[in-house]
């Protein structure tokens, strides 16, 4: 795990966690991604371009052919495929955030009948494999519904949004709970002693202070989610990986096509998520200082 590069070699005391673990880093993924130097992107592109030239110079399917196949299919892969990944990630984030915030607020509710189910819900979906959740949702939901004689088909990608929303929701729930708990208890007491009701305290005093702290981990989850959208190809959703496979098949399944096509998918995900990760780490640093 690569953390922020140390400015000194002085020993530091890590945040105290009563359970004895070292406190988890809420934006670990973004920190890892953002820790890559900017030249990784052109490097990856260069590898992609040069690899077939080196590895398959002697093959009967030439480097030029593979590259031109990729260029031919590129608009299709990007505009039909990757764009769907982005759409899925955005919708998932909207639903995941909405329900995650509700669940997170539920987790700090003083009423046990709200708090305990919210905690169980959060832990179950946070600790389930994403792919399993996707399959459950795919198989549990019908592919079409009939309302008053009208058959409405449910496109696969909306089911994928549903399936991915579950773990995102659970993780956003933890982000919200963590941010609320990070506000010093003195703020609650001060508000209480000024006769604010609990709801007013939460909405007027506590949540406005949490909002900034929640943005970096929230963006971190967006990057993780986007990277996870190719899982949907296993459900047959026509996103970038599915379409790349289809394109390779249409080009007679030459094994030489695998690296250019999937390498291109890697590149485009990296190009999309890397700036988000850099931005996340920047925001985290900026918000860290002020209380």
């Amino acid at each position: 795990m690569i953390r922020t590069p140390a400015k000194t070699n002085l020993p530091v005391m890590l945040p105290y966690d009563p359970t004895g673990r070292v406190a988890a880093d809420p934006i670990m993924f973004s920190r890892w991604l953002a820790s890559m130097p900017i030249w990784v992107l052109p490097m990856m592109a260069a590898c992609l371009v040069l690899w077939p030239a080196i590895a398959h110079a002697a093959s009967n399917y030439s480097y030029g052919q593979a590259t031109s196949a990729l260029f031919k299919w590129m608009p299709f892969i990007v505009l039909d495929g990757f764009l769907l990944n982005v759409v899925i990630s955005l919708f998932t984030m909207i639903f995941g955030t909405f329900f995650g915030v509700l669940l997170g607020l539920g987790q700090i509710s003083p009423a046990g009948w709200i708090r305990i189910p919210a905690k169980i819900f959060t832990q179950v979906f946070r600790n389930s494999p994403w792919l399993v959740l996707l399959f459950v949702v795919l198989l549990a939901l019908p592919f079409e519904i009939t309302i008053g004689g009208v058959i409405i088909s449910i496109p696969d990608w909306t089911k994928a949004v549903f399936g991915l929303s579950l773990p995102v929701m659970a993780n956003i729930s933890e982000v919200v709970r963590g941010a609320i708990n990070s506000v010093p208890s003195g703020q609650w007491e001060a508000a209480e002693s000024l006769a604010y009701s609990r709801r007013q305290t939460l909405w007027l005093i506590i949540l406005p202070q949490c909002f900034k702290r929640m943005i970096p981990p929230w963006m971190n989850w967006y990057a993780i989610l986007t990277m996870a959208t190719p899982l949907c190809s296993l459900l047959g959703v026509e996103e970038i990986i599915t379409l790349s496979r289809q394109a390779i098949e249409a080009e007679d399944n030459h094994p030489e096509l695998l690296v250019p096509f999937f390498g291109f998918a890697l590149l485009i995900f990296f190009a999309y998520c890397y700036p988000i990760a850099r931005w996340t780490v920047r925001l985290e640093r900026r918000f860290q200082v002020k209380l």
């Binding site: 010093p184 209480e192 006769a195």
Partner: peptide, 21 residues
């Protein structure tokens, strides 16, 4: 009625606890 009580009783803390935002 805690709210009614706290309208009558003001409190100032060691750590000020002003709302930073």
């Amino acid at each position: 009625d805690k709210l009614e009580l706290r309208k009558k009783v003001g409190m100032v803390f060691q750590q000020y606890n002003l709302f930073p935002h």
